[in-house]
Write a protein that binds this DNA or RNA. Sequence first.
DNA 1: ACGGTTTGTCGAAGCGCTTCGCCAGCGTCC
DNA 2: GGACGCTGGCGAAGCGCTTCGACAAACCGT
Lengths: 357, 357
Amino acid sequence: MSGRGRLPSGQPTIADVARHAGVAVSTVSYVLSGKRAISELTRNRVLASVRLLGYHPNAGARALASRRANVIALVLPLRSGIQVPVVMQFATAVVTAARRHDHDVLLLTSDEGPQGLHRIAAGALVDGVLVMDVELHDVRVPLLRELGRPSVLIGLPADTAGLTCVDLDFHRAGQVCVDHLAGLGHRRIALLGAPAAVYDRGTGFAHRTRAGVVEAAARHGVEAVTLPCEENAAQVHSRVVELFARQPELSGLVVQNEAAVGPVQAALAALGRRVPDDVSVVAVCPDQFAEHASPRLTSVPVPAEEIGRQAVSLLMRKVHDEPTPQVTLLEPRLTVRDSTAAATGAPAAYDGRAAAR
Amino acid sequence: MSGRGRLPSGQPTIADVARHAGVAVSTVSYVLSGKRAISELTRNRVLASVRLLGYHPNAGARALASRRANVIALVLPLRSGIQVPVVMQFATAVVTAARRHDHDVLLLTSDEGPQGLHRIAAGALVDGVLVMDVELHDVRVPLLRELGRPSVLIGLPADTAGLTCVDLDFHRAGQVCVDHLAGLGHRRIALLGAPAAVYDRGTGFAHRTRAGVVEAAARHGVEAVTLPCEENAAQVHSRVVELFARQPELSGLVVQNEAAVGPVQAALAALGRRVPDDVSVVAVCPDQFAEHASPRLTSVPVPAEEIGRQAVSLLMRKVHDEPTPQVTLLEPRLTVRDSTAAATGAPAAYDGRAAAR
DNA sequence: ACGGTTTGTCGAAGCGCTTCGCCAGCGTCC
DNA sequence: GGACGCTGGCGAAGCGCTTCGACAAACCGT
């Protein structure tokens, strides 16, 4: 009967909808996109047909004709020293946010490297790119600059000219941790950071946190030691031992390595140092971790959710050719839980209930 | 000069390549796809032009014309009780494997639910779907059956008719753990499993492991207790206490909850039970975890890498209309490390060196 | 009542690619 | 030496959608 039937897959096409509703193909398109005024009557008829036939526009055809794939790429790191749960939170936040902008997410891993990015962008498979785990001197940065496709970085490279970046203000985060410990009267503190490899390859957040810690310590006249820290229990243990060897009076610890949080607590326990009675611990880690530890950890959470949302939102602005700020830094906030208390000599009320001394 | 120039994006089209190489558009297409014989001479000329112009086929156009998107969807869970690092390993394995088949991966989260699947499949955005974290009576299973698009499940639903599923043989995994403990002479053992919520919603792997443990214990005439286990340190501690209250002579522990592994060790230490001297521990968890624990854990690793590869490979077969087995179960293998030793009374040589008693 | 808008709809021209059918040239086989 | 089959290449017809220009019809002010 009709010129074109349904697809072999059984999916109806826009032509089927148009025929069913008794209108032109273009009218259906305009109803669906809202790019031209359509009368209430026609719109309803079309929408009814769409629902009845179970029509879903063909993504390829749409992308071809409109030059918009409605897909963004998310480049995730998968190498050592990355904080898996945080990455996962990012990913889900990004997917959720993207869906709210009617986009899907294509998953790339860093190890495809620059040519992966190039392939995706050149093939018009995606409208924009979101890159995580950016290094200070990342090889992908120049590529992104010249790629001619919208991109947003999660993390800060050394030179942000011509880019759009979002991140937690890790410098402030380091400061905030030290401020908290110093405020409780701790005079000798330490930072147990990311694995050495992470510093070595110039990952921004690790360096920035360390700088924040050092700076705030100096400001408060507090002695601070900083050490990288691997993720296995034995290594963590020896790091902690090393720390107390260097500085026996250590009473405040900042831990920026979610995988090390548990082992650190175990190591302290093994050394007979109670938390928070003898040592106060502040972690930079996802809230979930801090909540599940025992005692519950005072922490500066990494707002993966929020960063992911912001990143998508910025990327969408770029896709639509709207201006965006070059750098967006989120303010860290510290949540006090049960792992920090006033330094020895001052009254401690560390579990929320007033402890009758 | 020419009918069509480059795209506004600056990307050359197949027409540009054809013109540059002095051949027809279709010839370029055939060179690139290899679907028809092309002379050595022509092929080389075309390939040279492709490289010179930096040509990348437009994904949308290709998908439209060929009815192949060269993209697969990966549906990841993001709810409580999932084992984040394992999921991440799956994801990266899937991406890597997909790339080897010249496909990209679209990331979906479970919380978009069935209609997410429907949208993706109906819009022809993807050629096939990979679903993780399948429940015994998963709502998505009927949908997948009728979707008319290739799909592969990672995990086993109750009824696998008409599906393609891959998973570790968790039933065997449970058995293997018990076999190992029983072989070392342990007569009273326990399984600390996934969080209760995971059992409640009928997640296959948890039930299957438990069944395997129970069955093997019965076969060996060993007493076995099984308990679900949450992921926070305090809860784990009380579970462990509960276990020893029920069964003071407990000397073998199977732990299937990577987040609980650390806390379990801490709890045992706190109770004064040494591993492996007093209690042997076997974990079902990623190798990385087992290696990083202290003592290093005897474990049955979840071969995320391998499962991911298999899943992609099966999906590709389905995409190409080749037959696939309904269920593929991977054989578990147990790696002996430092957390298991012969039961008290038998000579222990738990760290590999003969321990002169 | 008449030009001038505005509003709502249509038709058609692509978007860049794949694929089918066709054909020119050339070696092969009785 | 003519029918035949290969090989290698060409041209054109779509794939399903968006978008542009055109154009009736309805509405406006005067």
